[in-house]
Write a protein that binds this DNA or RNA. Structure first.
Lengths: 156, 156
DNA sequence: TAATGTCAGTTCTGTTTTGGAACCTATTAT
DNA sequence: ATAATAGGTTCCAAAACAGAACTGACATTA
């Protein structure tokens, strides 16, 4: 399978990877969530090469995750802002961060903390079924897909 | 920044990428959630080259996501099974799939459906704060991190 | 006994992608 | 005039990847 073919797969995991599945894109998105919008700021913070950054921003724009908007004329300059689709990825992003904090320990003790803006308390992210409020786990869900009807088979 | 340095970063996104941030790992994990355990089965389903598959399985084992277990002697054969950390990634995986279904449309009409095992109904995944039950969005959360105290600054 | 098949890899070679650094263009500031 | 700023592009070397063949330990079939 080629990298460029991922987008056309029916599997949503493959499609997700076509958008955020490379070395840098999720880090760029992280910085967007931090409020970063400009080329040089991304480049300084990430240590990514300018060439690759240019590429990734283009592809994020093409995927509808970021949009490029002029913020001044003379000289014309653009910045990159999250679209609704980009903002909508934030919960998934939080779920990844939460898993990582729990299962991929840092070498030093530092860590990110997410606080609720309303209560000021640390949040405890959880992925639930909005219909029932029940947490989603590997054993509570069954998948149906054209390519693999028996997703429910033995797992783990 | 080098690929190998990601693991030592304090940022959990960088650490997450050190584990699942390459072209193939998330697809391997998907197949694990389908119940796939053996080398050749991964290879056939994914179309990954055997060399890269071998590499990824080793690194997933090193990260504690999969464990390698003998399933027969003579000839000695191993299979790859999800650890608790691997299973614990499932909710994040579902959050990614859900976002993708909503924002990265497939070319053909096929799609995956996740059903609750108890009710049989389609699930509607949502990332909430377990303390309050409130959905987590970009605007409801404030981040604190050593590298960027003002995460809460203007965003979007 | 010989040939064939299975499974889990390793080795080889050539293409793609990335990293690192310098360069380019328009414009404002000194 | 000179330097600085912002947002890129161009070049080359290094790393990662794809595709295919090969290995080794057995098991099965002829």
């Amino acid at each position: 399978m080629k990298w460029t073919e991922l987008r056309d797969q029916s599997c949503p995991v493959a499609r997700a990877l076509s958008v955020v599945g490379d070395r840098w894109t999720l880090l760029i998105l992280r910085d967007c969530y931090f409020g970063i919008r400009r080329f040089d700021h991304f480049q300084e913070r990430l240590g990514i090469t300018r060439h690759v950054l240019s590429d990734r921003l283009k592809s994020l724009e093409a995927s509808g995750i970021l949009r490029r908007e002029p913020y001044q004329q003379r000289p014309l300059r653009h910045e990159y802002r999250l679209t609704e689709a980009g903002k909508a990825f934030y919960p998934a992003f939080v779920a990844i961060v939460d898993w990582t904090e729990a299962h991929v320990p840092p070498k030093d003790g530092t860590s990110v903390r997410l606080l609720s803006k309303t209560s000021g308390e640390p949040i405890r992210p959880e992925v639930v079924d909005a219909n029932t409020g029940e947490p989603i786990t590997l054993t509570s869900v069954r998948g149906i897909t054209p390519s693999m009807p028996e997703w429910d088979a033995k797992r783990g």
